[in-house]
Design a protein around this nucleic acid. Structure first.
Lengths: 111, 111
DNA sequence: TCAATTATTCAAGAAACGTTGAATTGTCTC
DNA sequence: GAGACAATTCAACGTTTCTTGAATAATTGA
């Protein structure tokens, strides 16, 4: 991930509804959720939801597929991982203080 | 770090000039750089720079101190680490795919 | 094919953001 | 104190982003 991609991912996540959507989708894995379901969970009108979903899709943070008459969205976890990796290694150049925050978590994937 | 703090950090970083500033300041550690120096390095007029510096400060990503007639800014590396930690552990709930991206880097702080 | 369901697109207005230049504040040196 | 230096604040402007509601597209089932 380069700076341009990181920028678009960061600004996509820097909005409440969109951060909520990503947090909702990550635990659903590749199975994902339909747009309607997402709208119910994040309490969001359809057209507003579509707007935010397409922003996340453009940033590469979620992927869309059709299932009958519904659209299923799922988190692009590799892109999210890429963003974290960018922050940790390209932005912060392996800085010890920053890295320690990651290591401090008891059950995180880095321990 | 909670969702509110993460949101403000993410949206602060989702802007080119501000991401540049953070990338510039992290390697400088607690020593930091003066506003004028930062302005030269990121090619930014004084008032515009001030605007972005205060946005980063409000998000807790940088700290300011005065040294004579100059203001010295330094990265708040713990806050940056906290953001990464949030993305990895609270947002992504220790997701394996996301975590793997972090582990994959050869010389990152997580290996 | 017609109606119902699901979701997107469009246009308009409101709100937030980013840029600019001028004015201001704080600090230093003479 | 006067002048220079470093940085911030302010107001104005244009741009982008977000929200809303109405219109449109795609799919399904009677």
């Amino acid at each position: 991930m380069d700076q341009t991609q990181a920028l678009s991912a960061l600004s996509a996540l820097g909005q409440e509804t969109r951060l909520q959507i990503v947090r909702l989708l990550v635990p659903c894995g590749t199975e994902g959720l339909s747009a309607g379901e997402i709208g119910l969970r994040v309490n969001c009108a359809a057209s507003r939801l579509s707007f935010h979903l397409s922003a996340l899709e453009q940033a590469g943070l979620i992927a869309a597929r059709r299932d009958g008459r519904r659209m299923i969205y799922s988190a692009e976890r590799r892109q999210l991982g890429g963003l974290i990796d960018y922050l940790l290694n390209d932005c912060c150049v392996g800085d010890r203080v920053v890295g320690a925050m990651c290591l401090n978590t008891s059950d995180g994937p880095c321990t």
